[in-house]
Amino acid sequence: MSNTATSGAQQVFQLKSASVSMTALELHYFDNDDFENALKDKISQAPGFFRDIPLIISLEKYEGLDSELDFFKIIGTCRRNNIHVIGVRGGNNDQRRLARGAALALIPGNGQRDRDHEAAPEKTELPEEPVARAAPEASPARIISQPVRSGQQVFAPEGDLIILAPVQAGAEVLAAGNIHVYGPLRGRALAGIHGDSAARVFCQSLEAELVSVAGHYKISEDLQDNGWKSAVQIQLRDDLLVVSPLDKA
């Protein structure tokens, strides 16, 4: 009765899609004492960063026994250190069943996702140019010297992506770091895909279908008014994508 009366009133909730960048803890083996010590050690390096963060446990590199994998202990230890384990990524069916028993969310693993990509048409491996690695700690940039054509996708999962050719309409380039396009950018460019909000996109001519930095994006329509078809950089300032001409940088 009261239900019908509220039909015109406000909805209880609405579902929206959200993409959040999160920290993954790549578990190699599990021993509760070792785990807690290592965790405390990490936290002591950056206490602010770890306070109340959501965390997912990645099982892709797990080499221990399934029987040692005690999610209740992992959750308990993390909670004692103000970290919230919310889900598990990857893992075999048994491991995922254990995770489910501990009320954790199941997130598709990197491996699973990669396999899907391979099935998709043309996950192209463009020939890469050798990259000089002076400092081994720095993530190497991926350098592409051929045009990235419609339907192709080029991904730099760790560092910057440098393209010395056009990125065509219908192509997609993604990088953990910055993206440089020394040619027209006509396709989609997504920088800082792991959440690096300091990443930028540089291009010689902005003609893009979409540009994104750390999940904040602008589509072609919204890019037309500022710097269109000219050399620009795109960066994030106060959660807003800002396009600025390169010659005044």
């Binding site: 043309e122 419609s150 192709q152």
Partner: peptide, 21 residues
């Protein structure tokens, strides 16, 4: 032109020459 661009990408990735490096 768009479709030609697409087929160029396929030539670079799916041809025997591309697959054999």
């Amino acid at each position: 032109v768009r479709d030609s661009d697409r087929i160029l990408g396929i030539l670079q990735s799916k041809s025997w020459r591309a697959e054999s490096g």
